[in-house]
């Protein structure tokens, strides 16, 4: 990508126009945070329990967030810092955004980031990232509350079954996510198996040492990652 295009992509105006969406994620989280505190009494949760839940989520997020940090610095060199910031604070994972930016360049008939990738092509890349994100935003914004009825129907008013259904959905999602890594063999397969075995052992240990519990997933991830990196 030419220096000119990248300097526009990093200009103050783009920072200012990218900021509202990035900040909106925090505003939304804050609004739900307040709503949970208001509702906690109704379902018999103490404020202390809410704090512990927040901590557990925050601690578990540290490892993956370091990975996102590293991937994002790479993304910044191709789409500029403010757009990378906005796109990774919302919906996007880096591969999705890179695909959208590339498809935008394809539609213009130039190579993403290559010769001929001018301001016009960049505007189409930005358009494609935005319109793609809106697919998820619109569907969830308009129809998420209808999904609650769908869940209730599946749950069939049976709390024991609803608990199993929730676990089954989780195992199904992560079965799929692991399936991709299993057939990739080597590094990803090793990371997945070592991560999985570590987690099972850590959770058994945490039954006796409950302080360990909130760190288990973070530690299991580090062990899986380290072993895979050393072996491959």
């Amino acid at each position: 990508m030419s220096e000119d295009v990248l300097s526009v992509a990093n200009s103050l105006g783009v920072w200012l126009t990218a900021a509202p969406v990035a900040i909106l994620t925090v505003i939304q989280a804050y609004l739900y945070y307040k709503q949970i505190y208001k509702t906690a009494d109704i379902v018999d949760l103490t404020h202390d329990q809410l704090k512990r839940a927040f901590r557990a989520g925050a601690i578990t997020a540290i490892g993956p967030s370091i990975a996102i940090f590293i991937i994002m610095v790479g993304l910044m060199s191709v789409i500029g810092a403010p757009m990378a910031w906005m796109r990774l604070a919302v919906i996007g994972a880096a591969p999705t955004e890179l695909t959208a930016a590339t498809v935008g360049a394809d539609a213009v008939g130039v190579t993403f980031g290559g010769e001929g990738y001018d301001l016009y092509a960049m505007s189409v890349s930005w358009w494609t990232m935005a319109i793609n994100g809106c697919g998820w935003l619109l569907f969830v914004g308009l129809f998420a509350h209808k999904l609650e009825a769908f869940r209730e129907k599946m749950g069939a008013g049976d709390p024991a079954w609803l608990a199993i259904l929730t676990s089954a959905a989780m195992i199904g999602v992560f079965g799929y996510l692991n399936g991709r890594n299993i057939i990739a063999f080597n590094g990803p397969l090793t990371a997945a198996i070592v991560g999985g075995v570590s987690m099972v052992i850590l959770l058994k240990v945490a039954k006796k040492a409950s302080w360990l519990k909130e760190y288990t997933l973070g530690i299991a991830m580090l062990i899986g990652m380290t072993v895979a990196a050393i072996l491959f």
Binding site: P64, P188, V194, M199, L203, T226
Partner: peptide
Amino acid sequence: ADAFRSYTAPAIFGAVFGQFSLRQ
């Protein structure tokens, strides 16, 4: 940096799968 980039996702996917496989 390479280790984080390549292996955090597979490791966390494996770990969560392990966690829920304990239950069911």
